[in-house]
C-alpha cells in the first residue's frame, strides 16, 4: 500500500521508498527508509503529515505515492 492511500492514524513500517535517487537519499537522511516506523498524523490541504523518528514532515501527494508501506 502507498502512503497516499493510508488512513489517518496509520502506524507501521516502510517497505520501500521509490522515486529519484536524490529524493530517496534526502528522505534517508531524515530517517525515512525501509524498515523504519512511520505514522500518518494528518492530511492537511492535500499534504501528508508524517511522523518519522521524532519529527513531523509534510509531503505532497507525489511523494506520498512513492512511499510504500508494509501490509499489516
Amino acid at each position: 500500500m502507498v502512503l497516499a492511500k493510508a488512513k489517518i492514524g496509520f502506524k507501521g513500517s516502510i517497505l520501500k521508498v521509490e522515486g529519484k535517487d536524490k529524493i530517496k537519499k534526502f528522505l534517508f537522511s531524515l530517517g525515512c527508509f525501509e524498515g523504519e516506523e512511520i505514522t500518518l498524523i494528518s492530511i492537511l490541504a492535500g499534504n501528508y503529515v508524517i511522523n518519522v523518528k521524532d519529527s513531523r514532515y509534510a509531503l505532497d501527494e507525489t511523494m506520498a505515492k512513492n512511499i510504500i508501506l508494509a501490509e499489516q
Binding site: K11, E37, T39, I41, S42, L44, A45, G46, N47, V49, N51, K53, D54, S55, R56
Partner: peptide, 21 residues
C-alpha cells in the same frame, strides 16, 4: 510517544485546514 497526535498537530488541523487555512 512522538507518533501520538499532540497539541501542535491539533493546531495544524485548524490553521492548515483546506477551507479555514
Amino acid at each position: 510517544d512522538a507518533s501520538k497526535v499532540n497539541l501542535s498537530d491539533r493546531i495544524d488541523r485548524i490553521v492548515a485546514h483546506k477551507i479555514w487555512g
